[in-house]
Amino acid sequence: MLLPIIDVGLMNEHLSTHEGLLGKLDLYLIDSSATYLQKIITIQQTVLKSHIQVMLELLNPSNENWIELPSINLEEKLSISWPVYSDFDTLTKRITLELQSAAKAMAHTNFTSALMMKNENVKHVHYEMAVQQATYMNYISAFVKEKDWAPSIKASQVTQRKVIEHFNSLI
């Protein structure tokens, strides 16, 4: 089946991004000595390769079948225990923060692209890809939060009440 040019263009861009990210993940595996970090990097590589395979199937002009994103139970795969010890080195922290950021960017890109895509199958697959990346990101974010590597500043009650008062007239 021939796809709308916007779908082809967006997938071309995604495939290039995946190629670059896979290269970066290969370097992280070399630099990382922490077993748990190697496992989460490997999981992201598996997810990205699955996304590449599906996009290539979608791009195949002789394909007339509905393509599904293979189901990957990320909750099960990511149910590894983070080490309890707290002597994480700077490199581990930075790689973890980069994994979080990359997954967030991929989820955002996949979702935004799905909104622009025209072919229903291509659109559906990219929504699913966004969910997979968001699930991966949420796992990493929970660990980052636990380690307080990216503290979140809370708003004051006064600030929150001001917002409520300002918009209360809308209901």
Score class of each variant (00 low, 15 high):
residue 50 S to Q: 12
residue 52 I to C: 03
residue 53 Q to Y: 00
residue 53 Q to V: 10
residue 54 V to I: 14
residue 55 M to R: 09
residue 56 L to A: 02
residue 58 L to F: 03
residue 58 L to C: 03
residue 60 N to R: 02
residue 60 N to C: 02
residue 61 P to Y: 03
residue 62 S to I: 12
residue 63 N to H: 08
residue 64 E to T: 13
residue 65 N to F: 00
residue 66 W to L: 07
residue 70 P to E: 13
residue 71 S to E: 15
residue 71 S to V: 03
residue 71 S to Y: 11
residue 73 N to R: 12
residue 74 L to P: 02
residue 75 E to N: 13
residue 76 E to A: 14
residue 76 E to K: 15
residue 76 E to C: 05
residue 77 K to L: 15
residue 77 K to I: 05
residue 77 K to H: 12
residue 78 L to R: 11
residue 79 S to G: 13
residue 80 I to D: 08
residue 83 P to D: 12
residue 84 V to A: 15
residue 84 V to G: 15
residue 85 Y to H: 13
residue 85 Y to N: 13
residue 86 S to N: 15
residue 86 S to A: 08
residue 88 F to S: 03
residue 88 F to D: 13
residue 89 D to Q: 10
residue 90 T to M: 11
residue 90 T to Q: 06
residue 91 L to W: 00
residue 91 L to K: 12
residue 91 L to E: 05
residue 92 T to D: 05
residue 92 T to Q: 07
residue 92 T to Y: 00
residue 92 T to V: 03
residue 92 T to I: 01
residue 93 K to L: 08
residue 93 K to I: 05
residue 95 I to F: 00
residue 95 I to M: 07
residue 99 L to F: 05
residue 99 L to P: 01
residue 103 A to R: 04
residue 107 A to N: 13
residue 108 H to C: 05
residue 108 H to A: 10
residue 108 H to M: 14
residue 109 T to N: 09
residue 110 N to G: 06
residue 111 F to Y: 13
residue 111 F to S: 13
residue 112 T to H: 13
residue 112 T to Q: 12
residue 112 T to I: 07
residue 115 L to I: 07
residue 116 M to T: 04
residue 116 M to G: 03
residue 119 N to I: 01
residue 120 E to R: 06
residue 120 E to L: 02
residue 121 N to M: 09
residue 121 N to H: 08
residue 125 V to L: 12
residue 125 V to M: 11
residue 126 H to C: 04
residue 126 H to M: 12
residue 126 H to I: 00
residue 128 E to V: 04
residue 128 E to C: 07
residue 129 M to I: 02
residue 129 M to V: 09
residue 131 V to Y: 13
residue 132 Q to P: 00
